[in-house]
């Protein structure tokens, strides 16, 4: 009904955090250029947060499209058809609290595993044709 709104809300927060972190990292890099070069093997937190924002925004936008497809989201106020009836609204909030929160939690959990794996891959000794993977 509106489960994508939970991920969209998380995406807004993570995007704001990511922008702030990016700014902080840029100013830190300006101050300590040599040290930053030494930490070349470390993946910046802002880049990792960008992965999470892409997943959250991507999922939220594509799921919003699905809701438009099923007529659950409309282009006029109150935008969610379930909001016009109190019983439907209660069901919608229940779905957001269960399905929506589970979606956001699973995406975040997958991202945490991804970050751990990425750190391990970056620290791994170089093989014959090692290439710098950027996303």
């Amino acid at each position: 009904m509106a489960c994508f709104l939970v991920s969209a809300a998380e995406a807004v927060v993570v995007t704001a955090v990511e922008k702030a972190e990016e700014k902080k990292e840029l100013s830190a890099a300006e101050h300590q250029g040599a040290k930053a070069e030494m930490e070349e093997t470390r993946i910046p937190l802002s880049r990792k947060l960008k992965w999470l924002t892409y997943m959250l925004w991507g999922g939220a936008v594509l799921l919003a499209f699905e809701h438009i497809w099923h007529g659950e989201v409309v282009p006029w106020f109150p935008f969610l058809t379930a909001m016009s009836d109190p019983a439907d609204a209660a069901e919608m909030f229940h779905e957001m609290a269960t399905v929506g929160v589970s979606m956001a939690v699973l995406i975040t959990a997958v991202w945490i595993v991804m970050c751990i794996a990425a750190n391990a891959i970056v620290k791994r000794p170089a093989v014959k044709s090692a290439s710098s993977a950027t996303m």
């Binding site: 892409y54 997943m55 959250l56 991507g58 999922g59 594509l62 699973l106």
Partner: peptide
């Protein structure tokens, strides 16, 4: 990739 994986995870929960 992130766009499709994000949507896939969300549909998987659904």
């Amino acid at each position: 990739c992130f766009l499709y994986w994000g949507a896939s995870i969300m549909w998987f929960v659904d």
